[in-house]
Design a protein around this nucleic acid. Structure first.
Lengths: 216, 216
DNA sequence: TACGTTATTGACTGTTCAGTACAAAAACGG
DNA sequence: CCGTTTTTGTACTGAACAGTCAATAACGTA
């Protein structure tokens, strides 16, 4: 055969932006859930044909996994960034984070406050609750997302403790788990149809009950 | 014809127990979600043929709605019963309820502590999060479940306030929403794969941060 | 301009889906 | 034992499903 080893040879470049496609798929999964979304839905939402989808990712499940990974790498470090800073303002950063988080998770700088409820809930959490019990990989990614949040919030609580705002006897990690459980809980409560004002109130209550220094 | 008007004539009675069937369907929906459950799955889980299913309920969606309604009427009044009582023990009842709720919602008297995680999460909450955004009826039923919980917990918080255990200046309903948000949140956190011990810790933390009388 | 390579496209496959139709069987009062 | 009504299981239907594939298009290189 005349195979002359064309080692350096460019082929047709892909015309879509990978991250953009995964983000569109994420929106679709958010809206309809995993089992409620068909490959055609993904195809329509992303503009990619079925063939391209199977070539670039690995079928429906591959799209989900990579969309979750993309979600994580896009927003996973936002809370840490938002919560980091001098001990002085730690409590206020925690307060501000809580209020924002219940309305549209790790808000990126440019992302609007949350178009609707479905877009606000934690993507990883929603997928974990739907299929995490029977999909170890999904559960793993979701757990990783949450773990990063726990670390960031714990660190901020510790900062507030150092600054004398939060009771130094309290376990910082326990408080972090509590606050993040509240945030995840608002995803469910929001799904019941409660108003944003109610969710804000819940976040304020959670902040208000934090054990402050010198109160007892 | 020889139609002699047999007006009074009993026909074949159904052999299955309606509530039992709906409970089995609930377990299936819990395990696989709504969109992840096929009518054949329901048929297998309940032991009923398709014909009987469509005759007794109204297709898949009808089974879900009636299973949720059954869930509500089966367990909806349990929290109120568990939380009701003299002001004296209100705080302890709240404590006990919190601890039990995170491991397997409105525990009935005979129901074991929760076979697995999927069985522990609130059925209404899980369905609401999966399809509530596009299914008004499901959202309505779920919201009704939650509303009853809020009422029961609020009442218990008020009792604890009257007894001097909880800060009387705190808004009882706000605290109830907060506690219930924590409970719902543990459904999500549990889906991440966290241990029951962790969920217990979260519940204990939530209880510990409740504003007590005379602390400030 | 011709070639190798990869992306894209849309049609195709066999399967599974929700819902319907229907015949057979079962259980009751008479 | 009979007539009636309901249950019950099965077979069917058209649509939707996930996944595959061959043909075509677009590129850098020679």
């Amino acid at each position: 055969m005349s195979e002359v080893l064309y080692l350096v040879c460019m082929a047709r470049p892909r015309t879509f932006d990978r991250d953009h496609v995964l983000h569109a798929a994420e929106r679709q999964f958010r809206e309809s859930g995993y089992n409620g979304t068909s490959v055609d839905d993904i195809s329509a939402a992303t503009g990619l044909g079925r063939g391209s989808l199977y070539a670039a990712f690995e079928g429906k499940h591959g799209v989900l996994v990579q969309a979750m990974t993309g979600y994580f790498s896009r927003l996973g470090n936002v809370p840490a960034k938002v919560l980091a800073g001098p001990d002085d303002g730690a409590l206020e950063r925690l307060h501000s984070y809580l209020l924002r988080a219940v309305h549209g998770v790790p808000l990126a700088d440019d992302v609007p406050p949350a178009s609707d409820r479905a877009a606000a809930a934690c993507f990883a959490g929603k997928m974990a609750l739907e299929i995490g019990a029977s999909d170890a990989e999904v559960q793993r990614i979701a757990a990783e997302c949450f773990s990063v949040l726990v670390t960031a919030v714990t660190e901020c609580v510790r900062a507030a403790q150092r600054n004398g705002d939060i009771d130094p006897d309290a376990d910082a990690e326990d408080l972090a788990y509590l606050l993040l459980t509240v945030i995840r809980g608002t995803d469910v409560v929001g799904a019941y149809g409660h108003s944003p004002a109610r969710l804000t109130q819940i976040a304020e209550s959670a902040f208000a009950v934090l054990p402050r220094t010198g109160r007892r």
